[in-house]
Design a protein around this nucleic acid. Structure first.
Length: 564
RNA sequence: UGGGGCGUCGUCAAGCGGUAAGACACAGGAUUUUGGUUCCUGCAUUCGGAGGUUCGAAUCCUCCCGCCCCAGCCA
């Protein structure tokens, strides 16, 4: 149901897979996986990878596993596992029974290590971390062999087993692959396979005090799971020869093909986990799911739909070129989804009272309002109308400029689904001069919004009844950063320097039409003429309505004003 | 001459030797009870640069330039 009859996106990875399928590689089978480390929340960049991996599995009639690469116990927590699973599911993907953890393979990795030692392809090094770094050489100078490189197989076996038994403190020994200290690829200069860490693991507890490095776990995990295509980001390109080396040295039967693609960058936000952590920790935002965050949970709370995010991931394409996608595309995808699906409703964010002088005091009527002009099936609802109303402050100007079509003294406009009204005067605060309310007259002949004499008005305003509308809090969000690329900072500057001080504006005195009184958390509406708003999933409840602006409507009037 | 990648419209991105798709953005116009939506129209004689091969090159060759990643017992 969520999958349209859309033809699968053809990208270079799909092309490679299609070729492999046609030549019968891996028996024509396709198996992918999404392999996060549970050390943070997922963001829109991960969504790209999730859509890619699960999408490829879907398009090629294959499978996609969810595997947690949990090889570093000091960084990982159950909280992250839970949030990641929730986010993947929310995005609309299903790993069925294929939930795996690299930590489930620890015993097997240990056996792999023993095998490499026996083949004299791995050794225990007793250099300190600093010494290892020094022996590694530099980008332009080759490394030197460790003095421990020549240890015999038996001694290595003994030492490694004692490492596992907990006989040595952290940092005293590591297990290294014996490859080539002179390689131009630093990853091949005898990479560390195991380190000693007397730390309990969130899943294996205290069963282990040695933990495999990611590089010694990732490729083999894929192989164990029968992954055919290991899709990852560009920075692992240099690691591919190492993964290949391990799999060949271990003589594993399944040799997944690694393919790298460029990770997603979005304008006006950041994607680095380290920086996102800082935004949360330093209080620049209110948590991982703050609606300004590019996290999946943040986008969700902002009002983004899974379908809009999937559509976005389909549209950005896939390549090896590092790129920066315009946030406007993400917003476009949301608008497109919501324009089609969100019910329309009227809400006034900055209320200005209107009194209809010729409307009978005490009278109330119910007017018909269409729920979605683009979708007849969405039906209609009743909206109460009375003598006193609120309209948007922005919709009135005492001295309107040339192109301002809305209400002004002496001018007639239409109230949506209501009547034509004409402004006859303003009442203001004697002291401050501030406009307190508008005095208007209405034309009873225009009920519903059409004049029998066919006279036209240049504007249609949204409104709510003063007596019947509900109070609401509305949170207006905009870009978290003023700079297109906040990560590109000048020397001595910090990315937090370009945080947008106006990324959140809270409006406490809004009025919404009564049909919103029971808005359920996460319900999304179009507030007519304003934008799409979603009931906050944490703070909105009956009696205390809170809406987040997901994205504004395109606003040509605002653009005209900006130009002037 | 450390290794590995990448350079096509403002932003993404097709293209794979036959004469530059599409999307977003932007700019006009039509329709409109949302200055929304929808609908038209315009928007790279040119593919980082220079040579070369060819009847023909973004696509092949050579050289050059620019950008990114790698020196965690992180992933």
């Amino acid at each position: 149901m969520t999958e349209q009859a859309k033809s699968p996106a053809i990208n270079f990875i799909a092309a490679i897979i299609a070729a492999d399928v046609s030549t019968g590689k891996h028996g024509g089978r396709v198996a992918t996986r999404f392999p996060p480390e549970p050390n943070g929340y997922l963001h829109i960049g991960h969504a790209k990878s999730i859509c890619l991996n699960f999408g490829l599995a879907r398009d090629f009639d294959g499978t996609c596993n969810l595997r947690f690469d949990d090889t570093n116990p000091i960084k990982e927590e159950q909280e992250y596992i839970d949030s990641i699973m929730e986010d993947v599911r929310w995005l609309g993907f299903d790993w069925e029974e294929r939930l795996y953890f690299a930590s489930d393979y620890f015993e097997q990795f240990y056996e792999f290590a023993l095998l490499l030692i026996r083949k004299d392809l791995a050794y225990v090094d007793s250099l300190s971390a600093d010494e290892i770094r020094e022996y590694r050489g530099t980008l332009t100078r080759p490394g030197r062999d460790s003095p421990y490189r020549a240890r015999g197989v038996e001694e290595n076996l003994d030492l490694f087993q004692r490492m596992k038994a907990g006989e040595f403190p952290d940092g005293t020994h590591v297990l290294r692959a014996k490859i080539d200290m002179g390689s131009g690829n630093l990853n091949m200069r005898d990479p560390v396979m195991y380190r000693i860490m007397h730390t309990s693991h969130h899943r294996t507890g205290d069963a282990w005090c040695i933990y495999p490095m990611y590089d010694f776990a990732h490729g083999q995990s894929d192989s164990i799971e029968g992954i055919t295509h290991s899709i990852c980001t560009l920075e692992f390109e240099d690691h591919r020869p190492l993964y290949d080396w391990f799999i060949e040295a271990l003589e594993l039967s399944c040799h997944p093909q690694q393919i790298e693609f460029a990770r997603l960058n979005l304008t006006h936000t950041i994607m680095s986990k380290r920086k996102l952590v800082r935004l949360v920790a330093e209080g620049h935002v209110n948590g991982w799911d703050d609606p300004r965050m590019p996290t999946i949970s943040g986008l969700r709370r902002r009002g983004y739909t899974p379908a809009s995010i999937r559509d976005f991931c389909d549209r950005i394409g896939l390549a090896k070129k590092e790129s920066m996608v315009d946030m406007a595309l993400l917003e476009h995808c949301l608008r497109e989804d919501l324009n089609k699906n969100a019910p329309r409703v009227m809400a006034v964010l900055r209320p200005l009272k209107v009194v209809l002088e010729n409307y009978p005091a005490g009278q109330t009527e119910e007017l018909d309002a269409v729920n979605n002009p683009g979708d007849p099936g969405a039906g209609s609802r009743k909206v109460p109308f009375g003598r006193e109303l609120y309209i948007e402050r922005d919709d009135f100007m005492e001295e309107p400029p040339r192109k301002f079509f809305r209400l002004a003294p002496g001018r007639e406009v239409r109230l949506r689904y209501g009547y034509f009204i004409t402004c006859t005067g303003v009442t203001r605060d004697e002291a401050t001069g501030e406009i307190l309310e508008l005095r208007c007259t209405y034309d009873p002949e225009t009920r519903g919004g059409n004049a029998p004499d066919n006279r036209r008005v240049k504007a249609t305003l949204h409104w709510v009844s003063a007596d019947h509308s509900c109070p609401a809090e509305v949170r207006l969000y905009s870009h978290l950063f003023t700079k297109e690329n906040p990560a590109a900072v000048e020397e001595g500057e910090d990315f937090t320097g370009s945080i947008n001080p106006e990324s959140l504006e809270i409006l406490m005195d809004c009025r919404v039409e009564p049909s919103l009184a029971a808005a359920r958390p996460e319900a999304i509406y179009q507030f007519e003429r304003l934008g799409y708003f979603c009931a906050d999933r944490h703070d909105c409840r009956e009696g205390k309505l809170v809406f987040n602006r997901s994205v504004s409507l395109r606003d040509t009037w605002a653009r005209l004003q900006k130009k002037a």
